[in-house]
Design a protein around this nucleic acid. Structure first.
Lengths: 196, 196, 196, 196
DNA sequence: AATGAATGAGACTTCATTCAT
DNA sequence: AATGAATGAAGTCTCATTCAT
């Protein structure tokens, strides 16, 4: 199947990467210019596909947008999952969480920007809310390996708030803030971490 | 000559509210259609001003956008300020905070949406980050009447995270979550407050 | 449905002369109204193509302008070439040159005007200087069939100067001026040429 | 009169420099951006006068353009006049002429460009032809101090042609070309200059 | 006499989509 | 199945001019 392009098949079968390439290009372009700045033309050029392909593969910009953000939400929600996966106990989970807050998002403008683009879409439209809700569910599932449901919810919200404030402020937060936050949310529930 | 124009003056020469009306119309339109969906034409129509007015009063869409969000940020950051203003001690401040989380934002799709549009802009561009940073500063100043600086920062971040998760989830959060969060952040610092 | 469109196909899909027609229309409009007076709209109307065609076929007004003047420069530089082609010896070449000065340009306001529009562009921008330089090279090549290089250069300059002064003066020049000029430039070089 | 601005005259008399400043600014802007690129706005900004002044002082762009080019034509035609003025005999007049060809115009993009803008206008419209005709008349009068009328006309045309070709070519002309041209036009009329 | 405010017209360009192939 | 050609609608912005002051 794959890899038999050379022998001139009578009917060139549909190029399976085409769609993927378009979606990736769209995502990159959204990161750069915002949802407000994209267009079929720009995406087609970035993906190096003919303009006509765009409306052939996707019914409209709407559909493309939805698929692009679905891909993004999945990929980004894998992140905290991997971090929690790598942790082996509550203590290292806390460390991982702090690192996540302090590095993952601030370290990547691309993700920061795409996250907000998605939130903006989700704030207005239920279709996208499905994406953000699934993302949250996945985050929480990851966290629940080490924390009880309520603590998990609070930690999840806290991560969100700290991350956003870190990104949207002009001055950096005081050092150690993230850890302090986590410690307070944890309170006396379960094993307490001695001051690191 | 032709027509019945007598009542309306041919040229509305003086209209000092013009600029303001345009800004308000822009904000309303952004709430409805998003930054991606606005245009000079639509805003002009909504504000009932000639299209030519748009670039007369604002050097470009950029300038209009910036002024619109400046107005929004100011108005919305007054909100928590007023809530804290109305509180008279730490306990009622906590109550106010919980109410703020549970009502202010979720209660108004307009504000939720505009907030995210602004965050998206701010994530990409420093000019807008100035707006969000000022907003955060104002929130914190309000909170610092009742809480120490570190607690304030954490509460502020928590409010952000809980609000967003509330808005971007498809299921409502468990009741009492906001209060539980605040209580944990407060921890044993200062006044006791028995578990609600 | 409404109207009597039956005869005309709804969408004129294939029209291979489209680009050419636009260039011609542009040139004619420049002759009439000047580079300062043209616009996509006017050219589109003159060429009977949709406005949207303009930037579809040409990346911008710049590109259209360049192609239009390239066409013009080529067509006009063919002129003296043809005249020199028709001459069979030095004497008839001189006659042809005099006729060229006295008739070709003054005889056609269109060419006069377009020439100056091109010169104005070339005075400011190297891209257009490539056109005028090629034109001059071609003129000189034509003349060098009958005259040595230095004489050719001088004749070429003289033709230019006399033509322009003829066109930009309000009174006609004294009769015989062009011939006198050529005779002087030729001087005693080569064949004598008895006073006509 | 001049210099009594301090004592608050009851009625601020019309600022006599205003018109001049506008004309100069227009000329400079035309040199930079071309007739095609100017506008009331840009000129007003460059002259530092209110936009409203423009149509107050000049009936329209037409009038301003005419005055600007009248000023330019006068100033530039003074140039050769001064050169001929400085010469004291036929030989030094020839030297001055050669210098004029080789330096005056090529030395100043501004003048080159403005000259062509004027020629372009004159090629199309008689009003501007009056300007170019007067300019030529003045040039010829200057030259007739040293040369007979026919020679003058030919020299004048030659200067024109050589200057233009020098400016519109991409390669520089062979050295000594201008002098060779003048020598040939002079021919055996009057005193001949030995090859320098 | 002079000008700031305002605007309708029109400038160039980009766009999503359609259609014939 | 896929796409190059084409276009009508709409985008932002600039403009000359008018008018009230």
């Amino acid at each position: 199947m794959a890899g038999v392009d050379q022998e001139t098949p009578r009917h060139r079968r549909t190029d399976p990467d085409r769609r993927d390439r378009i979606i990736d290009a769209a995502l990159e372009l959204i990161a750069t210019e915002g949802v407000a700045g994209i267009s079929h033309r720009k995406i087609a050029a970035a993906a190096d596909v003919p303009l006509g392909s765009m409306t052939y593969h996707f019914a409209g910009m709407e559909e493309l947008l939805r698929e692009a953000f679905a891909r993004f939400a999945t990929s980004v929600s894998d992140q905290i999952d991997r971090r929690m996966d790598a942790a082996h106990d509550r203590d290292s989970a806390v460390d991982a969480l702090v690192e996540h807050i302090e590095e993952d998002i601030f370290g990547s403008p691309r993700e920061l920007v795409l996250t907000h683009e998605l939130y903006t879409l989700a704030a207005r439209r239920p279709e996208y809310r499905a994406l953000t809700a699934a993302w949250m569910t996945k985050s929480r599932t990851s966290l629940e390996r080490y924390f009880d449901p309520t603590t998990t919810r609070l930690l999840d919200a806290l991560v969100e708030g700290l991350t956003i404030h870190r990104a949207l402020d002009t001055a950096p937060p005081p050092p150690g803030l993230a850890r302090e936050a986590v410690v307070r949310i944890l309170g006396s529930t379960g094993a307490e971490r001695p001051s690191s």
